[in-house]
Design a protein around this nucleic acid. Sequence first.
DNA 1: GTGGACCTTCACATATATGCGAGGGTTCCA
DNA 2: TGGAACCCTCGCATATATGTGAAGGTCCAC
Lengths: 130, 130
Amino acid sequence: MRIGELSARTDIPRRMLRYYEEQELIASTRAANGYREYAEETVERVAQIRELLDVGLPTRIIREILPCLGVPRVIRFPAPTPEMVGSLREELDRVQTRIDILTRHRDAMACYLDSVMAHDSGHQPNICVQ
Amino acid sequence: MRIGELSARTDIPRRMLRYYEEQELIASTRAANGYREYAEETVERVAQIRELLDVGLPTRIIREILPCLGVPRVIRFPAPTPEMVGSLREELDRVQTRIDILTRHRDAMACYLDSVMAHDSGHQPNICVQ
DNA sequence: GTGGACCTTCACATATATGCGAGGGTTCCA
DNA sequence: TGGAACCCTCGCATATATGTGAAGGTCCAC
């Protein structure tokens, strides 16, 4: 499919699709007239990229972890080198750290809300220790 | 304490501390000579801000959720209005969504690594479906 | 009283993810 | 054959979180 269709199906501006390609997050072939041609899977891949960007990961990291988040959603074996495995493991660690920190702060927010509710209903406020 | 000490203790450049203040993430009083004066708790507060920034939250959101992540790490009741509670609940939802997405991708990465390991040791590769 | 270490504000520079539009080629249909 | 709807590249503009430095005030120790 061409860029217009991909844009319509993913709801991502053409400008951004070209940017993702420049960042090597997606690939395209070129038709004789120079138009980009995308494979069907690209739709799902773009959705994954959006999720990861929305969650705060920079393209640099997305580029690194995308190859193992295969599309369709079944993993492949592109003969990973030990370096790839190592750096993937590091990214996994960083993602885990992100999750831990977000979880900690989420718990604090939830506890705060609980306390506010308890307070409203006349109970003693909880003391939340993170 | 003054900005130099705060910078040394938090390992955040002075430039950034002034920026956080401009973004209303931290506060300071001014000495007679115009120098910023920080309270002791600011050290911990800056650490929280760093965590949240590192995790990908923008200052806009941090400003919103910081008040309920009290320093010291025990919550306070600054008489929250219903609007504050509502928008905090929304932020909590967004943080939860972030956690969910990151968790899903973490699992995919971990599964991929598992499969690579199994492959190395001569087993059949796992099929990971997200 | 002078130098160095600290502080102030201000302004400009960078990277990243975006938006916007110009200038121009291609395809297709009426 | 002409216009609409595509596509291309290129460049400039924005916001956010940063880095860097200039021009200048303050304070203290020698």
